[in-house]
Simulated scan of single mutants.
Amino acid sequence: GEAGADVADFRRASEGDEQVKRDWARYQPIAFSGERLTESKPLIGAINGLALGAGLTCTFWFDLNIASTQARFSMRFAALGLTPELDSSWLLPRIVGLQRAKEMMLTARIYGAEEGRDLGLVRRVVEPEALEQEAISLAAEIAAHPRSTLATIKRMVFEDLLARDFSEIDRRSEDEFSAARRSPEHREALSALGQRREPRYHDAEHMASVAERMRRRS
């Protein structure tokens, strides 16, 4: 498949097509809300074709990306007389480094799957027929952990990226770690280790009983 804005839509918008403008105004804030994406459950991108322009920049907000050997990547904006969108001029240097990011944005070059992996756009490259199962396996590995812990980790990563004062990062890290040590999820992890069993993070009734026992002991 291919992902990216339709060049024909850009042309119609430049010619005053109000319907295209209304569609973009309605769709983009929903599809590409950075705040919504950072607060969501972990997101995995499985890229199996052309990821150009917005089709690439939206993946910068995903937590992990994998690609098939058929994937192609490009920051095509300069070739269309456009500037990078979806906060990508801020995100891309943090993903691939400043020099590589500027090369991608200034040249509008199209990169192959292996080049995308070497740049850091994706974690791994697999054959097209293996892509879906690879994504599912990765999702299952992540989903085994407590939802609240995963959400906190995601929030911490983005808040730390935005922080200008290291003391703020240090304070937040200490506060979150202290809170995690007092959580039912941590208590369940320790119990599971001691009893040589799998944690039951997603058993709501069991976790409620863990929380209740902790409350009584406090």
Results as ranks from 00 to 15, higher is better:
157 V>D: 10
127 E>S: 09
136 I>Y: 11
162 L>N: 15
138 L>C: 06
140 A>Y: 07
153 I>P: 01
178 S>Y: 09
175 D>S: 15
151 A>G: 04
175 D>A: 13
149 T>M: 14
178 S>G: 15
127 E>V: 04
186 H>D: 05
180 A>C: 09
151 A>V: 06
151 A>I: 05
160 D>N: 14
180 A>S: 12
139 A>E: 02
194 G>P: 01
186 H>P: 01
158 F>D: 05
170 D>R: 15
142 I>R: 02
136 I>E: 10
184 P>I: 00
145 H>F: 15
190 L>T: 06
174 E>A: 11
137 S>A: 15
128 P>C: 04
131 L>K: 00
183 S>F: 02
127 E>N: 10
142 I>Y: 07
156 M>P: 01
185 E>I: 07
171 R>E: 03
165 D>M: 06
186 H>R: 10
190 L>A: 11
168 E>H: 07
132 E>W: 12
135 A>P: 01
191 S>I: 03
178 S>V: 15
154 K>E: 00
186 H>Y: 15
156 M>Q: 14
139 A>W: 04
157 V>I: 13
130 A>P: 01
143 A>C: 05
156 M>W: 14
153 I>E: 01
187 R>P: 00
143 A>V: 03
165 D>C: 10
133 Q>W: 05
152 T>K: 13
163 A>L: 02
127 E>W: 12
127 E>M: 09
169 I>M: 09
179 A>G: 03
162 L>Y: 13
158 F>L: 08
127 E>P: 00
138 L>D: 04
135 A>G: 10
187 R>F: 04
193 L>G: 06
157 V>L: 12
181 R>D: 05
149 T>I: 15
173 S>E: 09
155 R>G: 07
180 A>D: 04
145 H>I: 05
129 E>A: 13
179 A>K: 11
163 A>P: 03
166 F>I: 11
169 I>Q: 03
170 D>N: 09
177 F>H: 05
146 P>S: 04
189 A>W: 07
163 A>M: 05
172 R>M: 05
184 P>K: 01
129 E>R: 14
147 R>P: 03
139 A>F: 06
163 A>S: 12
153 I>A: 09
158 F>C: 04
163 A>H: 04
183 S>W: 02
186 H>V: 08
142 I>F: 11
163 A>V: 02
141 E>M: 14
140 A>N: 08
160 D>P: 03
172 R>N: 06
133 Q>A: 11
177 F>E: 08
148 S>V: 11
175 D>F: 09
151 A>E: 02
142 I>T: 03
165 D>W: 05
151 A>T: 06
187 R>D: 11
147 R>F: 07
159 E>V: 11
161 L>E: 13
136 I>C: 07
174 E>P: 01
154 K>D: 00
169 I>T: 06
147 R>W: 08
163 A>T: 04
135 A>F: 10
163 A>C: 05
172 R>W: 01
132 E>Y: 13
150 L>F: 10
126 V>F: 04
185 E>V: 07
141 E>P: 00
157 V>Q: 15
189 A>L: 12
162 L>K: 13
168 E>R: 06
160 D>F: 11
